[in-house]
Design a protein around this nucleic acid. Structure first.
Length: 511
DNA sequence: TTCCGACAGTGGGGTCGCAAT
DNA sequence: ATTGCGACCCCACTATCGGAA
């Protein structure tokens, strides 16, 4: 059988994009995977799910501009492309950006137009074929003749689908079952769905739930084997060196073979949380950590135990994992928690958490095992929600399925002194297709002032009700503040711009 | 037949490190 | 010294498909 080349992936990707049915997408990918050589399976799975074996190679939209003309004959092998991407990633030091650009040029010169299109979307991180990890799990299962649940389980434990998929294709279900939690290698973290309030969250979980403080910090997964500690983020990147406080806390535990899940956060001396920006800055700074921990110390709160004393706990229910956590970690390092089925008790807990300045509450089903991905809504987060009536100052043309529609709105609050509007951020969220069509027409009619290729400025007449999580300090916007996670609730045709909320009322929410 | 869980897509603000200017 | 880019922290919401009910 002919060797699978890059052009075959590009064609498969085009077929996947052309069919909207998920089963058809899975069929196209599985067909290709069944033909790929074992030594190139990992590359094929990575590319077709929008990832690179190198993860990141330091190439973004800017480096991908002004690409050379394609060649006519497709011949590029997956191994050759993979080698080139590794060389691109390896560039560093002075001259590296020019060298990367040169190698990217070499890469694109060596492939056809269809391959260029595929590589461009792949490297830009926008495959837009309607298939990523979720579809690829099913495709791997189909091509390897293994149950999707086994693929999913191995993915949770290994955290990297191309490796799991390659193992399934060569070794079948036995190879999948050989994946275990490995201390020092991060597992895919369990994520939460959301609910508007505590009663809704309790109902989603079937009545009884463990409620925990939701801290606005950085998710951490801590692994300890003997005196060796490693700490990983939600995307499985290692940050051990940036969080010495966490390392020391884990080393002080009485158990030396342990994997914990939790959150690091910078707290003020009075125990209230610093703004998220402070925690994020502290955790990402790699220079002078010793001095930073004096000025901005980190606290850690664990909420789950994946392994204690050499025993894996992932498949146990939450209540048992938490009991194991409580036995091996001192109480002051455990996220405060209340088990209840009483909505009133739950709402009082929520109110108290918010009063203390924290982000909200995560409700957890006591029966749920630790699982990333599709195994139901075991965790549900609840956060308070603010709303404002703001004025649309401009709108940006959308991309992809929003092409040709005005999508992203510039939002302004009224300045009572000047009578002008002060921009507080943008949002594209909460808009239905119907609303997108309507606002495109409406804003083109309101167009006014200097518009460019992307931004259409409009007369400040439309009032829109916006929900958001909070107000943060901004170095970018003129008022010095910006909305966090803004989304549209509805337009307010009954309101005039003079009725919109003022910058002063927004400033009151900034602390 | 209808309902609902899971996915993919569409982008948001902020900060860092690094290389180029 | 400043600016631009890439990467990665945090993330909400809608449309769609297809299995569950």
């Amino acid at each position: 059988m002919r060797r699978v080349l890059l052009i075959d992936l590009a064609r498969t990707s085009a077929s996947v994009a052309a069919d909207s049915a998920r089963l058809a997408k899975i069929g196209h990918i599985a067909e290709l995977l069944s033909r790929v050589r074992p030594e190139e399976a990992e590359i094929a799975i990575a590319y077709l799910s929008g990832e690179l074996p190198q993860r990141q190679i330091g190439v973004g939209w800017r480096t991908l501009q002004d690409l050379p003309e394609p060649r006519q004959i497709a011949s590029a092998s997956l191994t050759r492309i993979d080698d080139l991407l590794s060389r691109i990633k390896a560039q560093s030091g002075p001259g590296s950006q020019a060298a990367r650009k040169e190698l990217v040029g070499e890469l694109f010169r060596s492939v056809t137009r269809q391959e260029q299109s595929f590589l461009l979307r792949l490297l830009a991180g926008e495959l837009r074929q309607g298939a990523l990890n979720g579809v690829m799990v099913e495709a791997v299962a189909k091509a390897s003749g293994t149950p999707a649940a086994e693929v999913r389980r191995a993915l949770t434990l290994r955290g990297w689908l191309p490796a799991v998929g390659a193992a399934a294709l060569t070794g079948g279900v036995e190879a999948l079952r050989a994946f275990h939690l490995e201390v020092g290698r991060p597992v895919s973290p369990m994520l939460a769905q959301s609910a508007p309030n505590i009663p809704a969250a309790l109902e989603k979980l079937g009545g009884l739930a463990a409620l925990e403080w939701k801290l606005d910090g950085i998710r951490v997964q801590a692994h300890r084997s003997g005196s060796d500690v490693k700490v990983f983020t939600r995307t499985l990147d290692e940050i051990t060196a940036q969080v010495p406080e966490l390392m020391e806390a884990v080393l002080a535990l009485p158990v030396d073979d342990i994997v914990l899940d939790g959150e690091v956060i910078a707290l003020r001396p009075d125990g209230r949380p610093e703004p998220f920006q402070v925690t994020a800055s502290r955790v990402t700074s790699k220079i002078d950590t010793a001095r930073l921990r004096e000025t901005t110390p980190l606290s850690v709160f664990f909420f789950d135990a994946l392994r204690v004393g050499g025993v894996d706990l992932l498949d146990l229910p939450d209540s048992e994992r938490h009991a194991a956590l409580a036995r091996s970690v001192p109480a002051e390092l455990i996220t405060p928690r209340l088990v209840t089925s009483d909505p009133d008790e739950g709402m009082a807990f929520f109110a108290e958490v918010v009063r203390r300045g924290h982000e909200g509450v995560v409700a957890k089903s006591p029966n749920t095992p630790y699982a990333a991905g599709r195994r139901g809504a075991g965790w549900v987060k609840v956060k308070p929600r603010h709303t404002l009536d703001l004025v649309v100052l401009a709108a940006e043309w959308g991309h992809g399925r929003r092409q040709g529609k005005l999508s992203n709105l510039h939002l302004g609050a009224r300045d009572p002194q000047s009578g002008d509007f002060v921009m507080l951020g943008k949002t594209f969220k909460g808009l239905t297709d119907e609303l997108l069509a309507w606002q495109t027409e409406r804003f083109l009619a309101l167009a006014d002032g200097p518009s460019d290729e992307w931004v259409v400025r409009v007369r400040p007449e439309m009032v829109v009700e916006v929900a958001f999580d909070g107000v943060q300090r901004s170095p970018r916007y003129p008022g010095g503040m910006a909305l966090r996670f803004a989304r549209v609730l509805r337009y307010r045709p009954d309101k005039r711009p003079e009725d919109a909320d003022t910058v002063d009322s927004v400033r009151e929410l900034l602390f």
